[in-house]
Amino acid sequence: MTTVPDNHPSRTVVRLDDVRKEYGDATALDGVRLEIRAGEAVAVMGPSGCGKSTLLNMVAGLDRPTSGTVQVHGQDLGALNETGLALFRRRHIGMIFQFFNLIDDLPALDNVALAAQLIGTSARQARRRALELLDELGVADRKDTYPAALSGGERQRVAVARALMNRPALLLADEPTGALDSRSGEQVMDLLIDLNQIGQTLLIVTHDPHLATRCASRLIEVADGRVARESAVEAAV
């Protein structure tokens, strides 16, 4: 039997099947179907409140659908309990947030190393790998700096390094440039493009068309909790 490698284009990394999410009377997602293959860079766009962040939360296993199934890396997330979801996330998913979400009490290096340490990697090994990543992302010289003393762009680079720490099958980015100035935003976009080019699967949630068109190969537009339009980036542009 042939094993399909994690980043082989034929492999489906994300599959959402008729996913519905309700918060009380409000419907955030309404029968969403979506498939993302390995190595793809997909951008989800839409106005505020359309359900794009909910969609990202479903894929990340941060929230559960009211109905339908979410499969990531071949695993049905609905079959996992909270601990199982956490274990799954730490192995297969990396996340980047708009507001970085770095721990203020830890320097950049330890913020990055943290993700590896949670899966039992020794402090020394985790720091070595973290330093490599910071070096690749161009912020190795800021390894001992605390988040409060980093610029926005530097913070997001550190956050990206942390997300990549456990070599995730899927990198999720929620408005990754939303809190950055244009120069820093461009740098982060370049970084995401570079990652995708070396085979990293990306799912980006944004309302910034520039980010979507620069980084993604496929664009999904969400409106009122439904996938309103799905297109290749060239077509969207």
Partner: peptide, 16 residues
């Protein structure tokens, strides 16, 4: 709360 949310998002289990 934000730190805890972040830690859980990167794979910290409820037990951890």
């Amino acid at each position: 709360r934000r730190d805890l949310g972040m830690l859980k998002s990167i794979g910290m289990t409820p037990r951890q």
